[in-house]
Design a protein around this nucleic acid. Structure first.
Length: 199
DNA sequence: TAGTTGATCGTCT
DNA sequence: GACGATCAACTAA
């Protein structure tokens, strides 16, 4: 399957967000490949969206958001977590899509190790497996995405997105999670009924 | 099961 | 100096 073209990312954030559902995020670490299906996303617009990091204009922290679409914006928050965003739109627009949840496909054992799933309790039963990547900070930990990956081109060879099957389950829409400003906008999209969607 | 809280620090005011 | 696009552990019922 092939990598998504630059033109896929150069559209507005809500469009890209919806279309990212069902696509496959691929991460290569050494000789190991991790991959997973994107099942939950949120769109963050630029200067017009008070919930967006880009709301107050470009700073050193958010400068990647103002770059060309198709790059990864990684930020550090709550003193201990990373979150991954796909930058969308043209240069200087400042839009991005937060990847909130993923359904693991390849490299599950390595993801478990990265998440610290060593306890026997975690190994038995698929019941606990969904805790692996059902949240923005969790999937970053599972995929080894850190500050270092900020600005990565998603059409490179270590971190990229490829076509998947077009999603069979219907797409749900809701308000975004964990924000206090601009919370009325329905810019969260997810695959209805998918086990890996957060909450 | 719902609700509360501690952890922990870069960024902006 | 306050707070945040979070998570996990804890409490109460």
């Amino acid at each position: 399957m092939k990598k998504l073209p630059r033109s896929f990312y150069s559209r507005s954030a809500p469009h890209v967000a919806k279309d990212l559902l069902g696509k496959i995020l691929v991460r290569r670490i050494g000789h190991t490949t991790l991959s997973g299906k994107i099942v939950e996303v949120e769109a963050y617009l630029g200067k017009k969206d008070p919930a967006s990091h880009a709301y107050r204009g470009k700073t050193r922290r958010n400068e990647v958001m103002f770059g060309e679409g198709g790059h990864l914006y990684v930020y550090f928050t709550y003193g201990m977590h990373f979150c991954a965003n796909v930058v969308t739109g043209k240069k200087d627009v400042g839009e991005a899509v937060l990847i909130r949840a993923i359904e693991p496909l390849d490299g599950i054992e390595l993801m478990k190790r990265k998440r610290g799933f060593t306890d026997v309790r975690h190994l038995q039963g698929a019941r606990h497996l969904n805790k692996l990547t059902n949240g923005p900070a969790k999937l970053c930990e599972a995929f080894g995405i850190k500050q270092q990956e900020n600005g990565t081109d998603l059409r490179g060879d270590e971190l990229f997105v490829i076509e998947g099957e077009s999603p069979k389950s219907p797409i749900g829409t809701s308000t975004r999670i964990g924000i206090t400003r601009g919370k009325e906008k329905k810019w969260r999209f997810f695959l209805k009924g998918n086990e890996w969607v957060s909450r």
